[in-house]
């Protein structure tokens, strides 16, 4: 179990406990976090789980694969801290991670 914090575009903060191995998308969906839909079930095919990762956590994440990178290149509001939550698998290394959901996904 590790903690993950999701900050909604309107400032609402939600911290949840996530089993290691689950993705931040799966954890968000299971906990009714608004703004993260995960329509494609985690296949990196839809970008409905786009999040902005807090800057200080960026270098703790594994590098992006080409598919995720190219989805994010074209996603609305994407920036250098953008990731797809379905591609971030929780681990003790990420205990405490903070992500923000973009305005466009609400």
């Amino acid at each position: 179990m590790s903690k993950a914090t999701y900050i909604e575009h309107n400032g609402t903060i939600r911290t949840i406990e996530v089993d290691d191995g689950l993705s931040l998308m799966e954890a968000a969906v299971a906990n009714m976090i608004p703004g993260i839909d995960g329509d494609c079930g985690g296949a990196a095919a839809c970008a409905t789980c786009h999040v902005h990762v807090a800057e200080e956590w960026m270098d703790k994440l594994p590098a992006m694969e080409a598919l995720e990178q190219s989805m994010l290149d074209m996603a609305a509001d994407s920036d250098h801290c953008s990731r797809l939550a379905c591609q971030i698998k929780m681990s003790t290394k990420l205990d405490g991670i903070i992500v923000r959901t973009p305005v466009g996904q609400h």
């Binding site: 970008a47 290149d73 074209m74």
Partner: peptide, 8 residues
């Protein structure tokens, strides 16, 4: 195999 193009 062109996800970005799909999105746009």
């Amino acid at each position: 195999n062109r996800p970005a193009e799909f999105t746009v």
